[in-house]
Design a protein around this nucleic acid. Structure first.
Lengths: 242, 242
DNA sequence: TTTAAACCTGTCAGATCTTACAGCTAGCTA
DNA sequence: TAGCTAGCTGTAAGATCTGACAGGTTTAAA
C-alpha cells in the first residue's frame, strides 16, 4: 500500500472514531507514538469554535488545558494564530522563552520527547494543525522526523480534508452553506474598505438601497447583527479578502 | 544538504528572480522539469490579483493564457476555486470532460507529460497552487511522482511562505509595528462582534462617549475612514486576533 | 411552466455613528 | 515643574445604518 493510498483511506472514514483510529495507525506507521489534530474556526472572535482529535496522552492533554497552555504554546501560535504555512520542528529555538521551555519540559515528562507541528488552512477561514510526536529522543528519532517531514505535512492535509468532510460540513456552522453571492462579496469588500453605502452604490452603479439589501442578506447568512459584524465575520472566515 | 535545508533556503531569497531560480533548482532535484506557482488574492472580485512564478515552457503558458484555459483547468478549480487542501495528480479522472481532455493533450505536446498540483492556502484569504511536471511519461516517472508527493507538498508550503515574505516586504502596508492601547483593542474586538457603542459601554463599564473616543483613536492610528474600516484593518493586520 | 435564486428598487422612522467643539484625572519622565 | 500619554466624559448637528413595509426583472434549473 503506497503512502498516498494510506492517506486517501482517511477520506473514506465515516465517523470521528474511525478517523481517530486510522490517524493513529498511520502516525504509528510513520514512527510517531502520539498525535493531536485541532481545527479552529473564528466564527466568533471572543469564542472561536475548536474541534480536536486527541491522540496525545490524556494526562498531558488535561495538564495542557488546565494550565491554559494554548496561550503560550509557540506551535499553536505559529500554526493557528499567525497562520503560517510551513511546519515547525520542536527545538529549543521554538520554545525559547522561560514559560515556553517550562511547558516543553513538562511535555517531555508525559512522553512527548520529540516531534513537529504542521499547519493546514482551508479555504473557509479555518486554521488547523497536526502535531506528531515520538517517545524516543535519540538522534535517530530526530533524523526520522526530518526525513518524514514531507509525508507528515501531507498527512496533515489529508486529515484536514477528512475532518472537513465529516465534521465541519455537518457541524454547527454549515460553512458550505455560507456561500455569498458575487454582489454580496463586492459590497462587503468595499464596506470593509471603509466605503459608505452611498459610495459603494456609486462604485457598483446600483442604488444605495440595493447595497443595503446585499449587505443585509450577507449579514443574515452569517448571523451578523450589523454591518461591522458582517465584515468581521466575512474576513475571519475567509469569505472575502482584505 | 537535507530536504528541509533545501526548502528553507527558499525563505532566504530576497528577490523574485532568485526565488524563481531556486525553485527551478529544487524542482529539478526532485526530478521535475517544469513548475508553475500561482497565488490569487481576491482584492477585486471582478479582477482578482494574481502573482505567478512561471517555470513552464513559455509557449505553453502563452497558449494557456490565449485560450483562457484557466476557466476550464480542473487543477486550477481544485486548488484555487474550490480551495481544496489535498493534492491532485494529473490523470484521466481529473481531465474527464472533453474540453479538459483536449487541454491536457495539448499540454502534453508542450512537454508536460505527467505531473501533479499542490494547493496552499494562507491565513489571509489568498489561495495558491504549485504544479510540478515531468517531461517523462514512463511508469517509472509516474511512480516517482507518487513517492515524492510529500516532499512536493512541502515544497509548495515553503514556496508559498517565501513568496509571502517577498511580496509582503515590498507591500505598501508596513504597519506591523502599529500598536493599539488595551482599551482600543477591547473596543475594536467587541465592535467586531457586532456590539454597538452603547453595548460596548455597558460591557466595559464606561460611557458610550468614551467608546467612541477609543474607536476613533484606533481608527486614526490605522488610517481608517470609519468604524467598519478600522475593524477590517485591525483584523487583517492581526491586531485584535484573540 | 413553475420554481428558485440572484439581482434590483422604493419609502420612512428610529437607531447608531461621525465629527466638531470643550475639559477632566492619573501616572510617568525630562 | 512641565510635558506627555492613556484614559475618561460632555454636547450636538448631521451623516449613515437598520429594519420593516412593498414591489420588480432576469436567468437557469426542475
Amino acid at each position: 500500500m503506497s503512502d498516498l493510498d494510506l492517506f486517501e483511506s482517511l477520506l473514506s472514514c465515516g465517523t470521528v472514531e474511525a478517523l481517530h483510529a486510522k490517524t493513529a495507525s498511520i502516525a504509528g506507521q510513520l514512527g510517531f507514538d502520539h498525535f493531536i489534530y485541532g481545527v479552529q474556526v473564528n466564527t466568533s472572535l471572543t469564542r472561536p469554535y475548536q474541534f480536536i482529535l486527541n491522540g496525545y496522552p490524556k494526562e498531558w492533554r488535561a495538564h495542557y488545558v488546565e494550565h491554559n497552555y494554548q496561550e503560550i504554546d509557540p506551535t499553536y501560535h505559529h500554526c493557528i494564530t499567525k497562520r503560517q504555512t510551513i511546519p515547525v520542528i520542536w527545538d529549543s529555538r521554538v520554545f525559547k522563552g522561560s514559560k515556553e521551555a517550562k511547558m516543553r519540559n513538562e511535555s517531555r515528562e508525559f512522553g512527548l520527547l520529540c516531534g513537529a507541528s504542521f499547519a493546514v488552512h482551508g479555504g473557509h477561514g479555518e486554521a488547523a494543525m497536526l502535531s506528531l510526536a515520538s517517545s524516543q529522543d535519540s538522534y535517530r528519532a530526530q533524523q526520522d522526523i526530518l526525513s518524514l517531514i514531507g509525508k507528515s505535512q501531507l498527512l496533515a492535509c489529508y486529515l484536514h480534508e477528512a475532518v472537513q468532510r465529516i465534521v465541519l460540513s455537518k457541524g454547527p456552522l454549515l460553512l458550505t452553506k455560507m456561500e455569498l453571492t458575487l454582489r454580496e462579496k463586492e459590497c462587503l469588500l468595499w464596506a470593509a474598505e471603509g466605503k459608505t453605502g452611498g459610495e459603494i452604490a456609486d462604485i457598483l452603479q446600483i442604488t444605495e438601497r440595493t447595497v443595503t439589501f446585499h449587505l443585509q442578506n450577507a449579514g443574515n447568512k452569517m448571523g451578523a447583527s450589523n454591518r461591522q459584524h458582517a465584515i468581521a465575520r466575512a474576513l475571519s472566515m475567509g469569505l472575502i479578502a482584505p
